[in-house]
Simulated scan of single mutants.
Amino acid sequence: MPRTDRLMRLMDVMRRLPAPVTAARLAQETGVSPRQLYRDIATLRAGGALIDGEAGLGYTLTEDPALPPQSFSRLEIEALRLAVDALSGIGDAELTDAAQSALSRIIATLPERQAQQALHAITRSFASAPDRDPPQVDLALLRHACWNELALRIDYRDLQGAATTREIWPLGLSYSQRTLMLLAQCRLRMDFRVFHVNRIQKMDLTGDSFRPRRVALVRDYSRKMAACRRDAYAARGEKIAVALSQE
């Protein structure tokens, strides 16, 4: 688990569990060793978190009253509620659970009136589960490879049924109701490719890194797609002009 995610989980656990919380319980809840837990406590304290207690006695998280409460407009609260609810119609289970957890943490920091608005928002989405075949590979590993810029070797079966093995640089995921797509640079073709995630039969890390290339590659892909759209619009405009001239 990335360090930032681990520290956020530790803060969340300390908010939820009755204080003081023993180091053993915190280590169990966050999935780390006691030694790592003590290091994480020290890191949070160095970052300004008010954590009382010590090993053997348990820990208590004290929220700093000097910090202003988090605040959103009513429309922003509606937007957050709708976005999280709608995610159940396109996202995978892990992503949807993460969004619900994040929203719960946000609501917990709101003033009472705004927290009630978030819990009883007038805008809701009742989207059904995604209408697509489930992936055969570990999405957590796929996200890990994207974020950490790690090359993957995939066994892939395309829409025509042809099977290939490729080494790719995974760049990002695109969700919709019917498809989950992976944008990557294919090292075989030395070009951008978009893969159907549910057609990836097998996936392994190669041990190679393409850091720090992901952001630049995504930017290049966006420029390439924008140029293609401009060309398509120009070509369509020429066809319309020709048709009008022949009337």
Rank of each mutant, 00 (worst) to 15 (best):
L141F: 02
R143W: 11
R132E: 08
A121P: 13
Y175M: 05
I154V: 15
P130R: 14
T164G: 07
A129N: 13
A93Y: 03
Q160I: 03
L82E: 03
L171I: 06
I107W: 04
R132A: 08
R166V: 11
L103A: 00
L80Q: 00
A102M: 13
Q117L: 13
S174P: 01
P170D: 07
M181Y: 06
S88V: 10
N148K: 10
A151Y: 02
L82V: 05
Q100K: 11
T165F: 00
R166H: 11
D97T: 12
A151W: 01
T123K: 03
L119C: 07
E167K: 10
L142E: 03
S104W: 00
A121K: 02
L152N: 02
R124W: 12
R187C: 00
L188K: 02
D92Y: 09
L82F: 13
W169H: 15
A93W: 06
P111I: 02
A162G: 04
H144C: 07
L183Q: 03
D85E: 12
G89N: 09
T164C: 01
Q116S: 12
I107S: 11
D133E: 14
D97A: 15
A151C: 10
T165S: 11
P170G: 05
L171C: 06
P111D: 04
L139I: 15
R113S: 13
S125D: 12
L95T: 15
F126W: 10
S104I: 03
Q177I: 08
A163H: 14
I107K: 10
I106W: 06
T165H: 04
Q117I: 03
A129P: 05
S125T: 10
A184H: 05
L103D: 03
A115H: 01
H144D: 15
Y175P: 13
M181H: 13
L171K: 08
A129T: 14
E167P: 01
D138C: 10
T165Y: 01
W169Q: 15
L87R: 15
E149C: 14
L171R: 07
L110G: 02
P134E: 08
L141K: 11
L110S: 08
I122N: 04
L183M: 05
Y175W: 13
L188N: 06
I154D: 10
L182V: 09
I154W: 00
L159A: 14
D97C: 00
A151N: 05
T96D: 11
A98L: 09
R105T: 12
R166Y: 03
D138A: 08
V84H: 02
A98F: 04
C186N: 04
Q177Y: 01
L139Y: 05
L182K: 00
R153C: 04
A151V: 06
L150V: 11
Q160C: 00
G91C: 03
L82H: 06
E112C: 02
P134H: 06
E167D: 10
E94N: 08
P134Y: 10
L87P: 00
I107D: 04
P170I: 07
A118C: 06
S101Y: 02
E167T: 15
L110R: 04
Q117E: 14
E149Q: 15
R178M: 00
V137E: 09
A108K: 05
Y175V: 13
C146F: 02
T123V: 09
W147I: 06
L180F: 01
Q136V: 13
L80I: 11
I122R: 12
S88K: 10
T164N: 13
A184Q: 01
R187D: 00
Q116P: 02
M181P: 01
S125Y: 06
S101I: 07
W169N: 14
E112P: 05
I154T: 07
